[in-house]
Protein backbone atom coordinates (compact mmCIF):
# COMPACT_ATOMS: atom_id res chain seq x y z
CA UNK A 1 0.00 0.00 0.00
CA UNK A 2 1.53 3.32 -1.02
CA UNK A 3 1.29 6.53 0.99
CA UNK A 4 -1.71 7.96 -0.91
CA UNK A 5 -3.61 4.74 -0.49
CA UNK A 6 -2.79 4.57 3.14
CA UNK A 7 -4.08 8.09 3.63
CA UNK A 8 -7.28 7.26 1.74
CA UNK A 9 -7.71 4.20 3.86
CA UNK A 10 -7.30 6.17 7.06
CA UNK A 11 -9.84 8.74 5.92
CA UNK A 12 -12.23 5.98 4.93
CA UNK A 13 -11.95 4.26 8.30
CA UNK A 14 -12.48 7.54 10.13
CA UNK A 15 -15.46 8.43 7.97
CA UNK A 16 -17.11 5.03 8.51
CA UNK A 17 -16.35 5.19 12.24
CA UNK A 18 -18.42 8.36 12.38
CA UNK A 19 -21.33 6.30 11.03
CA UNK A 20 -21.35 8.12 7.69
CA UNK A 21 -22.58 6.54 4.47
CA UNK A 22 -20.28 5.49 1.65
CA UNK A 23 -21.70 6.13 -1.83
CA UNK A 24 -20.81 4.35 -5.12
CA UNK A 25 -18.40 7.02 -6.38
CA UNK A 26 -16.51 7.35 -3.10
CA UNK A 27 -13.13 5.73 -2.70
CA UNK A 28 -13.32 2.42 -0.83
CA UNK A 29 -10.84 -0.32 0.03
CA UNK A 30 -10.87 -3.35 -2.29
CA UNK A 31 -11.73 -5.63 0.60
CA UNK A 32 -14.77 -3.52 1.46
CA UNK A 33 -15.96 -3.60 -2.16
CA UNK A 34 -15.43 -7.36 -2.43
CA UNK A 35 -17.15 -8.09 0.85
CA UNK A 36 -20.16 -6.06 -0.16
CA UNK A 37 -20.39 -7.60 -3.63
CA UNK A 38 -20.24 -11.04 -2.05
CA UNK A 39 -22.79 -10.27 0.64
CA UNK A 40 -25.27 -8.31 -1.51
CA UNK A 41 -25.19 -10.77 -4.40
CA UNK A 42 -25.60 -13.73 -2.02
CA UNK A 43 -28.55 -11.95 -0.55
CA UNK A 44 -30.01 -11.34 -4.03
CA UNK A 45 -29.47 -15.00 -4.98
CA UNK A 46 -31.20 -16.06 -1.75
CA UNK A 47 -34.27 -14.03 -2.67
CA UNK A 48 -34.38 -15.61 -6.11
CA UNK A 49 -33.83 -19.19 -4.97
CA UNK A 50 -36.17 -18.51 -2.06
CA UNK A 51 -39.01 -18.14 -4.54
CA UNK A 52 -38.86 -21.87 -5.25
CA UNK A 53 -39.92 -23.52 -1.97
CA UNK A 54 -42.85 -21.12 -1.66
CA UNK A 55 -43.69 -20.98 -5.34
CA UNK A 56 -44.09 -24.73 -4.92
CA UNK A 57 -47.29 -24.13 -2.88
CA UNK A 58 -48.95 -21.24 -4.72
CA UNK A 59 -50.86 -23.57 -7.02
CA UNK A 60 -52.00 -25.59 -3.97
CA UNK A 61 -52.83 -22.73 -1.61
CA UNK A 62 -55.97 -23.82 0.27
CA UNK A 63 -58.03 -20.65 -0.21
CA UNK A 64 -58.14 -17.85 -2.75
CA UNK A 65 -57.09 -15.34 -0.09
CA UNK A 66 -54.05 -17.43 0.88
CA UNK A 67 -53.19 -17.78 -2.80
CA UNK A 68 -53.31 -14.02 -3.28
CA UNK A 69 -51.17 -13.39 -0.20
CA UNK A 70 -48.59 -15.99 -1.18
CA UNK A 71 -48.41 -14.63 -4.73
CA UNK A 72 -47.83 -11.16 -3.36
CA UNK A 73 -45.13 -12.43 -1.05
CA UNK A 74 -43.21 -14.35 -3.69
CA UNK A 75 -43.55 -11.41 -6.03
CA UNK A 76 -41.97 -9.22 -3.34
CA UNK A 77 -39.06 -11.64 -3.19
CA UNK A 78 -38.42 -11.32 -6.91
CA UNK A 79 -38.54 -7.55 -6.38
CA UNK A 80 -36.01 -7.80 -3.54
CA UNK A 81 -33.77 -9.82 -5.83
CA UNK A 82 -34.01 -7.09 -8.45
CA UNK A 83 -33.10 -4.19 -6.24
CA UNK A 84 -30.36 -6.08 -4.47
CA UNK A 85 -28.79 -6.93 -7.84
CA UNK A 86 -29.06 -3.23 -8.66
CA UNK A 87 -27.36 -2.33 -5.37
CA UNK A 88 -24.57 -4.80 -6.20
CA UNK A 89 -24.21 -3.27 -9.67
CA UNK A 90 -23.36 0.09 -8.09
CA UNK A 91 -20.13 -1.60 -6.98
CA UNK A 92 -19.06 -2.21 -10.57
CA UNK A 93 -20.29 -5.73 -11.25
CA UNK A 94 -22.86 -6.93 -13.76
CA UNK A 95 -26.08 -8.72 -12.83
CA UNK A 96 -25.61 -11.22 -15.67
CA UNK A 97 -22.20 -12.23 -14.30
CA UNK A 98 -23.55 -12.55 -10.78
CA UNK A 99 -26.35 -14.79 -12.05
CA UNK A 100 -23.84 -16.90 -13.96
CA UNK A 101 -21.98 -17.44 -10.69
CA UNK A 102 -25.20 -18.56 -9.04
CA UNK A 103 -26.06 -20.94 -11.87
CA UNK A 104 -22.60 -22.49 -11.99
CA UNK A 105 -22.71 -23.13 -8.24
CA UNK A 106 -19.79 -20.77 -7.60
CA UNK A 107 -21.84 -18.26 -5.62
CA UNK A 108 -23.66 -19.16 -2.46
CA UNK A 109 -27.23 -18.46 -1.42
CA UNK A 110 -28.94 -18.98 1.92
CA UNK A 111 -28.78 -22.68 2.81
CA UNK A 112 -32.25 -22.58 4.29
CA UNK A 113 -33.73 -22.86 0.81
CA UNK A 114 -32.11 -26.25 0.37
CA UNK A 115 -34.73 -27.69 2.70
CA UNK A 116 -37.94 -28.95 1.09
CA UNK A 117 -41.36 -27.39 1.64
CA UNK A 118 -43.45 -30.49 2.25
CA UNK A 119 -46.83 -29.34 3.55
CA UNK A 120 -48.96 -26.21 3.58
CA UNK A 121 -47.82 -25.56 7.16
CA UNK A 122 -44.33 -25.03 5.76
CA UNK A 123 -45.65 -21.81 4.23
CA UNK A 124 -46.47 -20.75 7.77
CA UNK A 125 -43.15 -21.88 9.21
CA UNK A 126 -41.11 -20.30 6.42
CA UNK A 127 -42.86 -16.96 6.76
CA UNK A 128 -42.76 -16.94 10.53
CA UNK A 129 -39.29 -18.41 11.17
CA UNK A 130 -37.25 -18.02 8.00
CA UNK A 131 -38.45 -14.49 7.31
CA UNK A 132 -38.22 -13.87 11.06
CA UNK A 133 -34.53 -14.79 11.10
CA UNK A 134 -34.01 -12.84 7.90
CA UNK A 135 -35.50 -9.71 9.45
CA UNK A 136 -33.36 -10.14 12.55
CA UNK A 137 -30.31 -10.27 10.27
CA UNK A 138 -31.46 -7.50 8.00
CA UNK A 139 -32.78 -4.76 10.27
CA UNK A 140 -29.23 -3.80 11.35
CA UNK A 141 -28.28 -3.69 7.64
CA UNK A 142 -30.61 -0.71 7.18
CA UNK A 143 -27.83 1.19 9.00
CA UNK A 144 -25.04 -0.43 6.97
CA UNK A 145 -22.25 1.93 5.93
CA UNK A 146 -22.82 1.37 2.21
CA UNK A 147 -25.63 3.75 1.16
CA UNK A 148 -27.28 1.81 -1.71
CA UNK A 149 -27.38 -1.40 0.34
CA UNK A 150 -28.75 0.36 3.43
CA UNK A 151 -31.51 1.99 1.37
CA UNK A 152 -32.40 -1.27 -0.37
CA UNK A 153 -32.60 -2.99 3.00
CA UNK A 154 -34.96 -0.39 4.41
CA UNK A 155 -37.48 -1.32 1.75
CA UNK A 156 -36.80 -5.05 2.02
CA UNK A 157 -37.34 -5.02 5.78
CA UNK A 158 -40.66 -3.26 5.50
CA UNK A 159 -41.94 -5.99 3.20
CA UNK A 160 -40.34 -8.80 5.17
CA UNK A 161 -42.28 -7.86 8.25
CA UNK A 162 -45.52 -8.35 6.31
CA UNK A 163 -44.16 -11.73 5.21
CA UNK A 164 -43.46 -12.75 8.75
CA UNK A 165 -46.92 -11.75 9.90
CA UNK A 166 -48.58 -13.73 7.11
CA UNK A 167 -46.51 -16.78 8.09
CA UNK A 168 -47.52 -16.51 11.72
CA UNK A 169 -51.13 -16.00 10.68
CA UNK A 170 -51.03 -19.29 8.74
CA UNK A 171 -49.70 -21.05 11.84
CA UNK A 172 -52.27 -19.41 14.07
CA UNK A 173 -55.12 -20.48 11.81
CA UNK A 174 -53.81 -24.06 11.66
CA UNK A 175 -53.53 -24.21 15.47
CA UNK A 176 -57.20 -23.22 15.74
CA UNK A 177 -58.12 -25.99 13.32
CA UNK A 178 -58.53 -29.76 13.16
CA UNK A 179 -56.14 -32.28 14.71
CA UNK A 180 -54.58 -32.86 11.28
CA UNK A 181 -53.94 -29.16 10.91
CA UNK A 182 -52.42 -28.87 14.40
CA UNK A 183 -50.15 -31.84 13.68
CA UNK A 184 -49.17 -30.29 10.37
CA UNK A 185 -48.20 -27.04 12.07
CA UNK A 186 -46.17 -28.75 14.82
CA UNK A 187 -44.40 -30.93 12.25
CA UNK A 188 -43.45 -27.87 10.21
CA UNK A 189 -42.06 -26.15 13.30
CA UNK A 190 -40.08 -29.30 14.14
CA UNK A 191 -38.48 -29.34 10.73
CA UNK A 192 -37.84 -25.59 10.31
CA UNK A 193 -36.80 -24.56 13.83
CA UNK A 194 -33.16 -25.61 13.73
CA UNK A 195 -32.50 -24.62 10.11
CA UNK A 196 -33.91 -21.15 10.94
CA UNK A 197 -31.44 -20.78 13.79
CA UNK A 198 -28.67 -21.93 11.46
CA UNK A 199 -29.47 -18.93 9.26
CA UNK A 200 -27.40 -16.72 11.58
CA UNK A 201 -24.29 -18.57 10.50
CA UNK A 202 -21.54 -20.25 12.50
CA UNK A 203 -21.16 -19.46 16.17
CA UNK A 204 -19.06 -16.40 16.97
CA UNK A 205 -16.00 -18.44 17.82
CA UNK A 206 -15.96 -19.89 14.27
CA UNK A 207 -17.09 -16.91 12.24
CA UNK A 208 -14.45 -15.82 9.70
CA UNK A 209 -15.83 -12.57 8.32
CA UNK A 210 -17.14 -10.97 11.48
CA UNK A 211 -14.59 -8.61 13.02
CA UNK A 212 -13.56 -6.65 9.92
CA UNK A 213 -17.22 -6.35 8.88
CA UNK A 214 -18.09 -4.96 12.31
CA UNK A 215 -15.36 -2.34 11.94
CA UNK A 216 -16.71 -1.37 8.52
CA UNK A 217 -20.26 -1.07 9.86
CA UNK A 218 -21.46 -3.76 7.49
CA UNK A 219 -22.25 -5.95 10.43
CA UNK A 220 -23.56 -4.52 13.69
CA UNK A 221 -24.23 -7.55 15.88
CA UNK A 222 -22.58 -10.94 16.13
CA UNK A 223 -24.19 -14.14 14.82
CA UNK A 224 -24.81 -15.44 18.32
CA UNK A 225 -26.34 -12.16 19.53
CA UNK A 226 -28.82 -12.16 16.67
CA UNK A 227 -29.59 -15.86 17.13
CA UNK A 228 -30.34 -15.25 20.79
CA UNK A 229 -32.72 -12.42 19.88
CA UNK A 230 -34.53 -14.70 17.45
CA UNK A 231 -35.00 -17.36 20.12
CA UNK A 232 -36.16 -14.81 22.69
CA UNK A 233 -38.66 -13.34 20.28
CA UNK A 234 -40.03 -16.61 18.90
CA UNK A 235 -40.50 -18.79 21.95
CA UNK A 236 -43.36 -16.72 23.42
CA UNK A 237 -44.99 -16.55 19.97
CA UNK A 238 -44.93 -20.34 19.74
CA UNK A 239 -46.32 -20.73 23.27
CA UNK A 240 -49.10 -18.26 22.56
CA UNK A 241 -50.61 -20.50 19.90
CA UNK A 242 -49.79 -23.81 21.58
CA UNK A 243 -46.77 -24.90 19.57
CA UNK A 244 -43.88 -26.68 21.25
CA UNK A 245 -40.31 -25.70 20.33
CA UNK A 246 -38.41 -28.91 19.46
CA UNK A 247 -35.55 -28.34 21.88
CA UNK A 248 -35.39 -30.27 25.19
CA UNK A 249 -32.71 -27.87 26.47
CA UNK A 250 -34.81 -24.76 25.96
CA UNK A 251 -35.30 -22.98 29.29
CA UNK A 252 -35.88 -19.44 30.51
CA UNK A 253 -32.83 -18.16 32.37
CA UNK A 254 -33.77 -15.66 35.09
CA UNK A 255 -30.17 -14.50 35.55
CA UNK A 256 -29.42 -13.63 31.95
CA UNK A 257 -32.95 -12.60 31.03
CA UNK A 258 -32.72 -14.82 27.96
CA UNK A 259 -33.69 -18.31 26.92
CA UNK A 260 -30.97 -20.94 27.10
CA UNK A 261 -31.17 -23.29 24.16
CA UNK A 262 -29.54 -26.45 22.86
CA UNK A 263 -26.58 -26.83 20.55
CA UNK A 264 -27.12 -26.58 16.80
CA UNK A 265 -26.24 -29.66 14.78
CA UNK A 266 -23.16 -28.19 13.10
CA UNK A 267 -22.55 -31.37 11.12
CA UNK A 268 -25.87 -30.86 9.38
CA UNK A 269 -25.12 -27.15 8.98
CA UNK A 270 -21.83 -27.86 7.23
CA UNK A 271 -23.34 -30.58 5.10
CA UNK A 272 -26.10 -28.39 3.72
CA UNK A 273 -23.61 -25.57 3.21
CA UNK A 274 -21.30 -27.80 1.21
CA UNK A 275 -24.05 -29.01 -1.11
CA UNK A 276 -25.49 -32.04 0.66
CA UNK A 277 -28.83 -30.54 1.68
CA UNK A 278 -32.02 -32.29 0.60
CA UNK A 279 -32.69 -29.83 -2.26
CA UNK A 280 -29.33 -28.30 -3.26
CA UNK A 281 -29.40 -30.01 -6.65
CA UNK A 282 -33.09 -29.40 -7.29
CA UNK A 283 -32.83 -25.68 -6.56
CA UNK A 284 -29.87 -25.10 -8.84
CA UNK A 285 -31.38 -27.29 -11.55
CA UNK A 286 -34.63 -25.34 -11.41
CA UNK A 287 -32.78 -22.03 -11.72
CA UNK A 288 -30.63 -23.34 -14.57
CA UNK A 289 -33.65 -24.73 -16.40
CA UNK A 290 -35.52 -21.43 -16.13
CA UNK A 291 -32.44 -19.61 -17.37
CA UNK A 292 -31.82 -21.98 -20.29
CA UNK A 293 -35.49 -22.21 -21.30
CA UNK A 294 -35.70 -18.43 -21.26
CA UNK A 295 -32.55 -17.79 -23.32
CA UNK A 296 -34.44 -17.39 -26.62
CA UNK A 297 -36.83 -14.94 -24.96
CA UNK A 298 -34.04 -12.73 -23.61
CA UNK A 299 -32.26 -12.88 -26.97
CA UNK A 300 -35.46 -11.83 -28.74
CA UNK A 301 -35.94 -8.89 -26.37
CA UNK A 302 -32.36 -7.74 -26.98
CA UNK A 303 -32.63 -8.16 -30.75
CA UNK A 304 -35.87 -6.21 -30.80
CA UNK A 305 -34.41 -3.41 -28.69
CA UNK A 306 -31.44 -3.21 -31.07
CA UNK A 307 -33.71 -3.04 -34.12
CA UNK A 308 -35.73 -0.29 -32.53
CA UNK A 309 -32.61 1.69 -31.72
CA UNK A 310 -31.39 1.37 -35.31
CA UNK A 311 -34.76 2.54 -36.66
CA UNK A 312 -34.61 5.63 -34.46
Amino acid sequence: MNATQEKLREEFDAYVAKDKKIEPKDWMPDGYRKTLIRQISQHAHSEVVGMLPEGNWITRAPSLQRKVILLAKVQDEAGHGLYLYSAAETLGVDRADLIDDLLSGKAKYSSIFNYPSLTWADMGAIGWLVDGSAIMNQVPLCRCSYGPYARAMTRVCREESFHQRQGYSIMMELMKGTKDQIDMAQDALNRWWWPSLMMFGPSDKNSTHSSQNMKWNIKRFSNDELRQRMVDMTVPQAELIGLKIPDPDLKWNEDTGHYDFGEIDWVEFNNVLSGNGPCNNERLEARNKAHDDGAWVREAALAYAEKKKTKE
Binding site: G55, L82, G294, V297, R298
Partner: peptide, 15 residues
Protein backbone atom coordinates in the same frame (compact mmCIF):
# COMPACT_ATOMS: atom_id res chain seq x y z
CA UNK B 1 -49.86 -18.19 -14.55
CA UNK B 2 -49.02 -19.01 -10.94
CA UNK B 3 -47.26 -22.13 -12.20
CA UNK B 4 -44.62 -19.82 -13.73
CA UNK B 5 -43.55 -18.41 -10.38
CA UNK B 6 -39.78 -18.80 -10.05
CA UNK B 7 -39.35 -20.25 -13.54
CA UNK B 8 -39.73 -17.24 -15.85
CA UNK B 9 -37.08 -16.20 -18.42
CA UNK B 10 -36.05 -13.18 -16.32
CA UNK B 11 -36.71 -11.85 -12.85
CA UNK B 12 -38.79 -9.01 -14.33
CA UNK B 13 -41.11 -11.60 -15.85
CA UNK B 14 -41.40 -13.53 -12.59
CA UNK B 15 -42.74 -10.30 -11.18
Amino acid sequence: LAEWCGHAPALEEDI
